[in-house]
Design a protein around this nucleic acid. Structure first.
Length: 258
DNA sequence: ATGCCCGGAACGTCCGGA
């Protein structure tokens, strides 16, 4: 069972690249972020033709998340509890193939001196509470997506320059560590503890891709029951080098059959 | 020190991204 996550930075602008990657990589489950479209505008025919069932939680222009799966989707839930005023589409969850999966687009949080940073921390806090509740069921689950957090200095090309950025601030890292301390496994780091320069994002600006100036901000967090089955986790850099690339590239994990 | 590059909305130029 291969589970991928990819921030596509507009599903409409990225459709040819996404279809090409799904054809070759063929993940069983693919979690998408930053659709930038309403649910009715999602290219369900094109993605459905590849054999995927689809659940989306979109909105106009910004945000938007989706779950694609080769097995049927059940118990689909949209949004996180705990803030009725939050209308941004950043969370969708479903059960498929015996696994509960979530596609998450955590807020960026910059600039840190604005209300954007407390919004990020508040959203993350709601995610922590949700994860804590999920863990009580002792299920196989995967909380994956664009966390907009570099968990440690090893996950940033320039830790000093980024020290005060919302992606690297101690408050952001503390909440990521809380997820780990709850018992969740960072799939990539668990299997590659010492790999350096393992990025999932390269900015469009200043030749970041060509100079390999990246960040590791897209993560697959596994419940203990999922981590028991973890066999592999890799970043696929190929889509980032294509024409009309997203600034993020896919990361996937392989779980042994249940 | 600031912007660089993108996508969306919209048609000039700004917002959001990370």
């Amino acid at each position: 069972m291969r589970i991928a996550t990819w921030n596509v930075n507009s599903i409409k602008a990225r459709l040819p690249n996404v279809v090409a990657w799904l054809r070759t990589a063929s993940p069983d489950i693919c979690l998408l972020q930053e659709l930038k479209c309403v649910d009715d505008a999602f290219p369900a025919l094109e993605i459905g033709e590849l054999g995927y069932n689809i659940a989306t939680h979109g909105q106009k222009t910004y945000n938007g998340v989706a779950i694609l799966s080769k097995t049927p989707l059940e118990d689909v839930r949209r949004g996180l509890d705990g803030d009725e005023s939050d209308i941004q589409s950043r969370y969708i969850e479903a059960v498929t193939g015996g696994i509960r999966v979530a596609s998450i687009y955590l807020p960026n949080g910059n600039p840190v001196e604005t209300e954007k940073f407390p919004y990020k921390l508040g959203f993350f806090d709601r995610l922590v509470k949700h994860a804590r509740a999920m863990l009580r069921h002792e299920e196989v689950f995967v909380l994956a997506g664009d966390y907009n957090v570099c968990p440690t200095d090893a996950d940033v090309y320039d830790p000093i320059g980024w020290a005060n950025d919302a992606l690297c601030r101690p408050e952001s890292r503390a909440l990521f560590r809380t997820m780990i301390n709850l018992g969740l496994t960072d799939a990539y780091r668990a299997l590659h503890p010492n790999v350096e320069r393992a990025w999932t994002f390269w900015d469009y600006q200043a030749g970041a891709w060509q100079r390999d100036r990246g960040l590791r901000i897209d993560h697959l967090l596994l419940s203990p029951q999922a981590a028991d089955r973890l066999q592999a986790c890799e970043i696929d850099k190929e889509p980032r080098g294509r024409d009309k690339a997203s600034d993020h590239t896919p990361i996937w994990c392989e779980l042994a059959p249940g």
